[in-house]
Design a protein around this nucleic acid. Sequence first.
DNA 1: AGTCTTGTTCGACT
DNA 2: CAGTCGAACAAGAC
Length: 281
Amino acid sequence: MPELPEIETLVREMQNISLIGLKIVKVCVYWLRTIAELTSEEFENKLTHKIIESISRRGKWIIFTFANAPFSLLIHLRMTGKFLLDSNNLEPTSHERIRIYLNDGRILHFIDQRKFAKWHLINTDKILNSLGIEPLSKEFSLKTFKQLLKGKRQIKPFLLDQHNLAGIGNIYADEALWMARIHPLRTVNSLTDKEIEELHYAILTVLKKGIKNAGTSLGSTRANYSNIKGQRGGNQNQLNVFRLTGSPCPRCQTSIKKIVVGQRGTHFCPNCQNENLSYSM
DNA sequence: AGTCTTGTTCGACT
DNA sequence: CAGTCGAACAAGAC
């Protein structure tokens, strides 16, 4: 489940391996519905002969821009989307959805086992404008965070809603709540100023740590996050609660519990993320 | 072999 | 209008 740190890692990597300035010589779409809004032919035609000008990130979206092109390309990996770069012009593997041939002989393969990922060339401004604050930007001040929290209900669904903050997903939401010692069922209006401050700090800390560790690769199957060379990240070894049901809490040794909050699997420590203060509504 | 799980966005509902 | 909730997407695990 690639979230902000995984996307950031991937984008930095793509910048570092000199994709900028390369020309797209050919595009092959193997799974039509990975392309939003356009037919595969329209999509292939629009991208062919374009020169990659920049690669960046906003929330969980990857943004490509092209020289002299009036459009940009927005990619969301959803659960299992990933890129691999090599020079192997072999038959597409069963989960390869799109292939981009570059003018230096390398090939960018887009793999997506679950087929949830989407590539957009249309309405991209609308998508970007709908996103909330970038949590690692200056904009994400404690004051803004407090303002954003006003009138919202449960804290965990708030963190996952991309209209509030852009880029946090299930892994980093659970980790941040654990770090701030806040129970995931807590209502926003029950949070004390101190707790909000700790949560603000925790969000920054878990995201930065994820980037420092080059992302989180869950499980052991190829469906999970890996970088453009197929290497796994390192952050999964440093998680404190996510997917650690039954393991001892690193802080107090209490067994980590799993519940459902806002239809999402949620992991927390029932001892140090105490819910006694909650439900003051 | 059907049921459940998984994350995100979108549309429907309140 | 703003917030919340369920559906849909697809495939693998059980």
